[in-house]
Measured scan of single mutants.
Amino acid sequence: KTVHVNGVQYDFDNPEQAERFAKEMAKKAGLQIQFHGDQIKIE
Rank of each mutant, 00 (worst) to 15 (best):
E43T: 12
A29Y: 15
Q9C: 15
G7D: 05
V5F: 12
Q9W: 10
A22H: 05
Q34P: 00
R20K: 11
N14P: 00
G7F: 01
R20S: 14
Q34N: 12
Y10Q: 04
D13C: 15
K27C: 15
L31E: 05
Q32N: 13
L31T: 09
M25P: 00
Q17I: 09
H4R: 09
Q39W: 11
A22K: 03
K27Y: 01
D11W: 14
G7K: 05
D38V: 02
K1H: 13
A26C: 14
E19N: 06
A29T: 14
Q39Y: 12
V3Q: 03
Q17S: 12
K23E: 14
R20I: 11
F12W: 02
A26P: 00
Q9A: 11
E16A: 10
T2F: 00
K23C: 15
T2G: 02
F12D: 04
P15Q: 12
Q17E: 14
H4K: 09
G30A: 07
V8Q: 07
I33F: 01
R20W: 05
I40G: 07
D13Y: 01
A18L: 09
I42Q: 06
A18Y: 06
V3L: 04
G30I: 05
H36L: 14
D11H: 13
A29H: 15
Q39N: 08
R20G: 09
I42C: 14
F21V: 06
K28M: 12
D13H: 00
T2E: 03
N14H: 05
D13R: 00
Q34W: 05
D11Y: 14
A29G: 10
K41A: 10
A29D: 11
E43G: 10
K28G: 08
G30L: 02
D13A: 05
A29F: 13
M25L: 11
G7M: 02
E43H: 07
G7V: 03
A26L: 09
Q39H: 11
P15Y: 14
M25C: 15
G7Q: 02
R20F: 07
A18R: 02
Y10V: 07
Q17V: 08
V8P: 04
F35N: 12
F12T: 03
A18T: 04
A29Q: 12
E16H: 07
Q9M: 08
K1D: 03
A22I: 13
G7E: 04
E16M: 08
H36W: 14
A29L: 15
E43A: 08
G30M: 05
V8W: 07
N14W: 06
Q32C: 15
G30K: 03
M25I: 12
N14G: 05
N6K: 07
K23I: 10
G37N: 10
A22C: 14
A26G: 07
A22G: 05
N6W: 02
G37I: 00
G30Y: 01
D11A: 04
Q17P: 01
H36Q: 13
V3M: 02
N6F: 12
H36V: 13
K27T: 12
E19C: 15
T2Q: 10
K1G: 06
D38C: 13
I40Q: 06
P15S: 13
K28A: 13
K1P: 07
N6R: 04
G30E: 08
Q39C: 15
K41W: 15
V3K: 02
N14K: 03
G30C: 15
E24I: 04
F35G: 11
Q34S: 12
Q17T: 09
K41R: 11
N14A: 05
V8E: 08
Q17F: 08
G7Y: 00
E19D: 11
P15R: 12
V5W: 12
V5Q: 01
I40E: 08
I33P: 11
H36D: 15
M25H: 04
I33N: 09
G7L: 03
E19H: 09
A26K: 02
V8K: 11
K27V: 09
G7I: 04
Q9N: 08
F21M: 06
D11S: 06
K23V: 10
I42T: 07
E19P: 01
A22T: 03
G37M: 00
K28Q: 13
P15F: 13
K41P: 09
N14M: 05
K27G: 11
E16F: 05
N14V: 05
K23P: 07
E16C: 15
Q34I: 14
A18W: 05
D11Q: 09
M25G: 01
N6P: 02
A18K: 03
F35I: 14
E43S: 10
L31A: 11
A26I: 05
V5I: 13
D11P: 09
E19L: 15
F35H: 13
N14D: 14
V8A: 05
